[in-house]
Every structure is written in structure tokens, then in C-alpha cells.
Design a protein around this nucleic acid. Structure first.
Length: 574
RNA sequence: CGGGGCAUAGCGCAGCCUGGUAGCGCAUCUGGUUUGGGACCAGAGGGUCGGGUGUUCGAAUCACCCUGCCCCGACCA
């Protein structure tokens, strides 16, 4: 492309409302523009990058035996009624009614539609397994879109769905997809990590997320320094000894006006880990919808609400109100686990601990010498605490560390969560009707583009991996002499003939402007044609942000191509 | 939805406290000089000061309401 024909609206200043680097650079370099909250235009440069990302994903998915199809964005409400997600999915599902009063929604994901399709066509086990995928726009009415492409409401996703005759076959496909994802993210040159994950609103049993490591990431992941255990903190299990004091009889201590764990520990001069935090929650969804539960963790731990929701059989939990707390025999600020009229779930770390301090369920008082086994016999021990840096690994005893990550992919072994209600049935080898087993596998394509920018940037702008850059070569004409113009054009044509994406900057701009723009938008390789070099019959070539070398005009394209080829093969990991 | 902040030209900002008819840098357009790392000179265009109501002789400025955006929390690719 000739630069003067391109729509590349670059900005010198950083837009004030862009917080993270990927958002700033994609805006500044003319890749994206906001249309409305969480919804963006992908400008020509962005589309070029997206197409290249998609090409890699397609290649790997196809290699793994998956087939591409395309499903609609508009989906009928009845499908969601059938899977029982019409209610469960909540306000994130954008619903609307058409002129015939049919309930419809914009697809946030496609389990319903694909199950409906497969259920209609699937007859025999001989048709299985099968893995179908698409790359398509999704819409989720996020509570708080932010960070540009990192959390949009409309975004591009690659979503794959596999169907199987049995659990073993699903397990094999899950492993294959896991390996495929490793290959994909490796090909993008990313520092990433697969971690065990919660299944969230999608449901199912096993799940792994793929996180690109970045400080701007919204997720916290825990990983062992010594073994390969890694998990989202929503799920990570780790070990830390409990601080327990010498056993003692249960006694009441007056703690006037002192209620937070920090204050109580200070007031009584004890380690904060010796206290018990008793948190009261109201359950949402599930069989116990609306019920209240008590959850206890050590004073120096944080409760992980997602874990609580799971053990309580809930979709989610929310902090109880003061009235709720009073209704079960507690006193806000002084709640303790004893004699509450609800289920008491206690974190495993407190199992066997003695001499603990907890609220007394009476204003201005705590109890000391608490021993769950003796004083709260109905307590159920479960994993509730959030992993902290420095915990011991639950597998090998190594040290746990925390990192921030951007979730760019997730794989799920769904089992029959959708195929059962959606009636995805087939005749098995014995001639019996059987429910198919399912897996699903997503990659956030537009988010991935942002995640790559988070990892690939410097002072000057974006530094795309060669394989993803919108143009691999930036050809800069310096000066307006006929010699420069003609030589540039000849080189430009040769690159085009060689099938190289080249952006030729033939604008009547000063060199500085051209260099800055190319570095901002992130073109990896530069070819510079100027009168100074042409006097010696040479032009300069070189990688972005590195020094350039002179090459005779006649050899430029050949040398450049071989440099590009070399870089390509060292970048590619097969 | 709860908590915090912001809204003035395409982008970045000043002006507001102490009301008096809107300004700076960059970008854009015209002419000229420049052309090896975001040029210079001269001129020009572009703003219902987010919207509404009120106070006032007079509101970007003061008051109230609304809307939008950004950040922190719950959600997720």
C-alpha cells in the first residue's frame, strides 16, 4: 500500500481516557476508535493484524482436525430457555424482542446454537467425534467495559465445540485442544501460562485458562516455583500452617468498640492469624437460593468468594446485610461461628487449630480459646481461602508465587451440561440412545491483539512480531528527487511481487515524521531510499529500532527477503 | 449498582475559585521556504464551553438535575 492512500489516523498525544498501554498505543497508532462503551471500530491496520492472528488460529485448529463454520449473532430466546440459561446468564445477555414479539438475544457464546444444530443432524456414534469452530463477534453486556480491547462488550472470539460419544474421547480432545492452544500462543511469541480454572457460568468439570503474563492483567494467577502447578486464584489450593495458640477453655473477652481483625489482634496483642474471620453470605442461585451461610477463614487470609459459592452449591454469593446477620444470631462486627442458626463452613487451614479468637456474637465482645472441634462441632471444613504469595504448593510443597495475567483463552470439558437439556442424542454402538459429551474452547481474538501489544511495545510504539505486523516492510522515500521516487517505486513493486506486505511512505513529509509513524504503528522492517545513499548506489535496510546497513540497490529486495525469511524461521516454533 | 474523578476545537490542555461575550500547543487548510529522525514564516478555518433548568443586566465560570466518559469493586474471551 502507498501511505497516502491509507487510513491511518495517528495521534501525537495520548488520549486522556486510555489507561493501559495497549489501549493507548492502539488508539495513537490509528488501529482502533471507540464507537460506544466497550464497542470499537477496527481500522484497516487493526483488521490486517486480526486477520493474521486468525490465520494462525485457523491453521492450528484445522491441523487439529476441527472444521470452521459460522453461526449467527442473533439467537432465539427459546434455545436459551431450553438450556436454562435465559435466567442464569443474567443481564450480560443482551435481550430484545422482534416485531413478532419473539424473544431474541445477541450471542455471548454459542453452546445453545451449536447444540441445536448438532442435535438435529446427529444420529450415529459413527458421526463422532466432531469439533466445530467459528471466528465471530460476540456481545456481552459487561458491567464495566474497560482498557480498550481488553474488556469490550462486543469482541471477536474463536469458539470451538466438540462432541463425543464418551468421556474418554472428550478427555483426548481436551488434551489435543490444550496442546493446540500451547502451539498457538507460542507461535505468537507470547509469555503465557496455562492455569487450572474455575468453570464460571459456562459450567462443566475441568477447565484451564491461558493467561498472557502482564502487570496490566485483570486476573491473579498462582503458580508453584518448583513444579508446574498453576491455577487461577479463584481456584488455586495451597497450604500454610495455622497459627494456633495453646489449647484453653472458651472464655469471653470484652473488646469495646474493637471489631476489625487488625484492631482486635492489636488490642489483644496476638498474631492476626490467630483470629477467625466469620463472614456471613447470602447464597444466590442453586437449590439453596436465598439461604444464608457463615464462612470462616483465618484472620490473615482472604475469603475466595468463588470457592464459597462452589461449596455452598450456589451460582454466586453476596455479603449479607446487617439484618440477615441479626436474623441468624450474629452481631455485625462481632460475628463468631458458635451457635449460629446456619451452615458454618470453615477453611481447612483452621482444621485442628486451637486457642483461636473469634467474635462472641455479642456487641463489644470476642471469645478466646476457640477450638472448632470442641466448640463448633457442626462446622464443615472446606477450602475457602485465597492463595497468598509464600504459601506452600499443595502438590509438591514448593513456594507459591502470584502473577497478573490476561486471560486470552479457556478450554472446558463440559460433559453433558448442555447436551442433556438440549437433547444432543445419538445411537451408540449397542444401538441405545445416548447423550453426547461436549467440550468447548475459546480464544479472545480481539483481546489477544491487545495482550500482544501489552507485551510487545517500547518507547517508540508497538513492536509486532513479524508474523502479525500489519505490514512487514516499511519503505521510506526521503526527498523528492526523481531518482528516489523511481528507485522506491521499483523496490515497492518487487516486494509486492514477492508477496511481502509493504507500506510505501511516499508522502511529502520530513523523514522524522515517517520514521516516527512507522515505529509507532510497529512495522518490523525498514527500507530507506534517499539521495545520500543513491549517490553510492545504495539504500538502507534494517529492523525497527536498530541501526540500518547499506545495500546496493540491485540487491536490496533479495537481501531484505532473506533477512525476513531468516527471522521468520527463528520466530516460528514448530 | 456502590465508591471516586472528569466533561472547553480532531488530540492534549488553560480559563472557572473572584461571572463581563473563549484561549494555548499539536493536528487541519492556503502560500512560501525547507526535506536523513515529529521543520520554519505568513495567513486561514474549526467550539450550541456534554445537555437542561435556575440565579443574574450578563453564565464556560455560581446552584440544582440529567447524560456521557474514566478509575476502584462484583462479571468474563
Amino acid at each position: 500500500m502507498r501511505y497516502s492512500n491509507c487510513f491511518i489516523p495517528t495521534l501525537r498525544d495520548v488520549p486522556a481516557d486510555a489507561e493501559v498501554i495497549s489501549h493507548q498505543l492502539l488508539l495513537r497508532a490509528g488501529y482502533i476508535r471507540r464507537v460506544t462503551s466497550g464497542v470499537y471500530d477496527y481500522l484497516p491496520l487493526a483488521l490486517r493484524v486480526l486477520r493474521k492472528i486468525e490465520a494462525v488460529i485457523r491453521e492450528e485448529m484445522n491441523r487439529a482436525g476441527a472444521q470452521e463454520l459460522l453461526m449467527p449473532m442473533v439467537q432465539p430466546g427459546e434455545l436459551w430457555e431450553k438450556s436454562e440459561r435465559m435466567e442464569k446468564y443474567g443481564p450480560e445477555l443482551l435481550r430484545f424482542t422482534d416485531r413478532h414479539s419473539h424473544e431474541s438475544c445477541l450471542g455471548p457464546t454459542h453452546e445453545e446454537v451449536i447444540c441445536d444444530l448438532v442435535a438435529r443432524e446427529l444420529r450415529s456414534y459413527k458421526q463422532l467425534p466432531m469439533n466445530l469452530y467459528q471466528i465471530q463477534s460476540k456481545f456481552r453486556d459487561e458491567i464495566r467495559p474497560r482498557f480498550g480491547l481488553m474488556r469490550g462488550r462486543e469482541f471477536i472470539m474463536k469458539d470451538a465445540y466438540s462432541f463425543h460419544a464418551d468421556a474418554d474421547c472428550l478427555a483426548a480432545e481436551y488434551d489435543k485442544m490444550f496442546a493446540t492452544y500451547q502451539r498457538i500462543f507460542t507461535r505468537f511469541g507470547l509469555k503465557f501460562r496455562p492455569v487450572e480454572a474455575d468453570t464460571g457460568s459456562i459450567g462443566g468439570s475441568d477447565s484451564h485458562e491461558f493467561h498472557v503474563l502482564a502487570d496490566s492483567g485483570e486476573d491473579l494467577i498462582a503458580h508453584c516455583a518448583d513444579c508446574d502447578y498453576a491455577a487461577n486464584v479463584e481456584k488455586a489450593i495451597s497450604v500454610r500452617p495455622c497459627i494456633s495458640a495453646t489449647p484453653a477453655a472458651l472464655s469471653v473477652v470484652e473488646t469495646p468498640g474493637v471489631s476489625s481483625v487488625e484492631d482486635v489482634a492489636g488490642f489483644l496483642s496476638v498474631d492476626i492469624g490467630q483470629l477467625v474471620k466469620t463472614l456471613i453470605y447470602r447464597i444466590q442461585g442453586g437449590a439453596q437460593d436465598g439461604a444464608i451461610v457463615a464462612a470462616c477463614v483465618a484472620g490473615d487470609d482472604q475469603l475466595q468468594e468463588i470457592k464459597l459459592a462452589h461449596v455452598a452449591g450456589a451460582d454466586s454469593v453476596e455479603m449479607a446485610t446487617d439484618d440477615d446477620i441479626a436474623s441468624i444470631g450474629g452481631v455485625t462486627g462481632f460475628v463468631g461461628p458458635q451457635q449460629l442458626s446456619v451452615r458454618v463452613l470453615v477453611d481447612n487451614r483452621l482444621h485442628g487449630a486451637t486457642g483461636l479468637i473469634a467474635g462472641a456474637n455479642r456487641r463489644d465482645a470476642h471469645v478466646a480459646g476457640l477450638d472448632f472441634g470442641r466448640d463448633v462441632p457442626e462446622a464443615e471444613f472446606v477450602d475457602l481461602r485465597e492463595t497468598r504469595a509464600g504459601d506452600r504448593c499443595s502438590r509438591c510443597g514448593g513456594e507459591m508465587q502470584l502473577s497478573r495475567g490476561i486471560e486470552v483463552g479457556q478450554v472446558f470439558a463440559l460433559g453433558k451440561r448442555y447436551t442433556e437439556p438440549m437433547e444432543v442424542l445419538f445411537q451408540d454402538r449397542q444401538g441405545k440412545r445416548s447423550v453426547a459429551t461436549m467440550g468447548c474452547y475459546g480464544i479472545g481474538v480481539s483481546r489477544l491483539m491487545a495482550a500482544i501489544v501489552e507485551q510487545c511495545n517500547d518507547e517508540a510504539g508497538i513492536s509486532w512480531p513479524l508474523a502479525l505486523a500489519p505490514f512487514q516492510v516499511g519503505l521510506i522515500s526521503m526527498g523528492r528527487s526523481d531518482a528516489v521516487r523511481q528507485t522506491s517505486e521499483a523496490i515497492y513493486r518487487q516486494f509486492l511481487e514477492a508477496g511481502i506486505d509493504v507500506l510505501w511512505d511516499e508522502r511529502n513529509e520530513r523523514p522524522g515524521v515517517k520514521f516516527k509513524d512507522f515505529e509507532l504503528i510497529g512495522l518490523p522492517f525498514q527500507v530507506v531510499v534517499g539521495d545520500r545513499g543513491l549517490k553510492e548506489g545504495a539504500v538502507e535496510i534494517g529492523w525497527r529500532q536498530q541501526s540500518r546497513s547499506s545495500v546496493p540497490v540491485a540487491d536490496v529486495v533479495r537481501v531484505a527477503l532473506s533477512e525476513l525469511e531468516q527471522a521468520r524461521s527463528s520466530e516460528a516454533v514448530n
